[in-house]
């Protein structure tokens, strides 16, 4: 690629959607909420597994 070719690439305006500051903030908040909800779901599954298995967690055929 020539020097002028590289310059043209850099000058090209970016295509696609550029998020505004408010959209970025909203997306970040939604992402955090989804992460927290998934984390809570994992904890619920883990604790319920412990409760359901109880002491039997140690009882398994060798």
């Amino acid at each position: 690629m020539t020097m002028s070719g590289a310059m043209n690439q850099a000058d090209k305006p970016e295509t696609g959607i550029r998020l505004t500051e408010a959209q970025l903030r909203a997306r970040r908040a939604r992402s955090i909420a989804i992460a927290l909800a998934l984390g809570a779901f994992v904890i619920v599954i883990f604790v319920v597994t412990l409760v359901k298995l109880g002491g039997n967690v140690l009882t398994r055929p060798m």
Partner: peptide
């Protein structure tokens, strides 16, 4: 349009 929905909207 990219969403501007906050967590409060989903709640």
């Amino acid at each position: 349009e990219p969403s501007i929905a906050g967590v409060g909207d989903y709640i």
